[in-house]
Amino acid sequence: MANILAVDDSASMRQMVVFTLRGAGHQVTEAADGQAALDLAKRQRFDLVLSDVNMPRMDGITLARELRALPAFKFTPILMLTTEGGMGKKQEGKAAGATGWIVKPFNPEQLLATIKKVVG
């Protein structure tokens, strides 16, 4: 099972994501914004990063860019949790190095199905 870093400034979203992932047997670490996530990533490896886009201190796009600059995260899948249906934020995320995205609102089943695509 995968070791996942879940980043979202919304406690309820984080709670939902963490609950779902742990229920599926993954190991999950939480961070409330991009900066906190980056600090964690500098000390620890993760198999997958799930990040919200809009966050205080450091947004998800910047986080993706900063993570890709870390040797340990060069190829780590980074999925953005985005509410945007359009291509704008997705492209921005991709340009910053994100692997893919999950469009909010999603339910636990959709989340797990998407996760399965990247961590097997």
Partner: peptide, 16 residues
């Protein structure tokens, strides 16, 4: 797997 979303609502309302 079915997850009851009710349990997260309180947190959601509080943070909102």
């Amino acid at each position: 797997m079915s997850i009851d979303m009710e349990q997260f609502k309180a947190t959601f309302i509080e943070e909102s």
